[in-house]
């Protein structure tokens, strides 16, 4: 079997794919434009806040088309991936999507934090929010990666976004009825088992909520969801075979 540096090869293939994707470029450009607009139109504080809440979506968008299309196009049935090495490539791809999203996030966070420190406007809690955002980013990659076994192209990302839009619409409806779920979700504490389970269920669809509410329950809950998706992803990859096209 090959003696070369396989990690470099797989990293090269994944890196070129991330760079070649127009959607990734548009998402990144749109995200930067949004942050710039918020800073100019409103303030540094609002811009930084938007960054903290929205940066995990970079990981989500970078996770589009992770598995399905590559498996079914036959391009993994290549001498480079003989001996089951296509499985390692797919796992590395998920790791690369997370690394790209989190890496870009780190660059932006560093820039914003340095400016905030220099201007005396940096708030310590932003560190906690940023750390929670990292977990959310990993959650998105693992969930989208698993869904990509079943959904074509960027549908894995689309279905997560659709779930979030549906949840938001539900929230608006519930809030307009002045019912308890939204109140419970936005309260400082989550008393009772039912409220805790509701919160965890919402976290699965809208993990960004953890950035706002960094309690032991939310972090542990999201950590558990992430571990579950990662385990499912690893299991699917390990069992994957390249059958007839």
């Amino acid at each position: 079997m090959p003696a070369g540096n396989r990690l470099t090869v797989e990293g090269f293939i994944v890196g070129r794919k991330l760079l070649a994707s127009r959607v990734n470029g548009l998402v990144l450009a749109g995200f930067l434009a949004l942050l710039g607009c918020l800073w100019v139109v409103d303030s540094y504080r609002v811009c930084f806040s938007a960054f903290l809440y929205l940066s995990p979506f970079l990981c989500l968008f970078f996770s589009q088309d992770m598995v399905h299309d590559e498996v079914h196009s036959g391009c993994l049935e290549n001498v480079i991936f003989m001996g089951g090495r296509f499985r390692r490539y797919l796992l590395l791809k998920a790791a690369a999507a997370a690394a790209a999203g989190l890496g870009l996030g780190l660059v932006l966070f560093s820039g914003l934090a340095v400016y905030g420190l220099a201007a005396g406007r940096f708030e310590g809690r932003a560190l906690g929010q940023y750390a929670a955002g990292l977990l959310v980013g990993i959650y998105y990659v693992s969930a989208a990666g698993f869904l990509s076994f079943f959904l074509r192209a960027g549908s894995n990302v689309l279905i997560i976004l659709l779930g979030q839009v549906t949840l938001f619409a539900g929230f608006l409806f519930i809030a307009s009825q002045k019912m308890g779920l939204v109140v419970r979700l936005t309260d400082a504490s989550v008393p009772g088992m039912r409220a805790k389970l509701e919160f965890l269920a919402v976290t699965a669809v809208l993990p960004n909520i953890v950035i706002a509410r960094r309690t032991w329950l939310s972090v542990l809950g999201l950590g558990t969801w992430t571990a579950l998706w990662l385990a499912l992803l690893a299991w699917k990859v390990r069992a994957l075979e390249l059958k007839m096209r």
């Binding site: 070369g4 090269f12 293939i13 070129r16 590559e70 036959g74 391009c75």
Partner: peptide, 22 residues
């Protein structure tokens, strides 16, 4: 029926192959 990554050119695939085989 060989298939290849749609985002890579021939020389890029050859480079990756060469690197993976040392």
């Amino acid at each position: 029926r060989p298939a290849f990554f749609s985002w890579l050119s021939g020389s890029e695939i050859l480079r990756a192959t060469a690197r993976s085989f040392g």
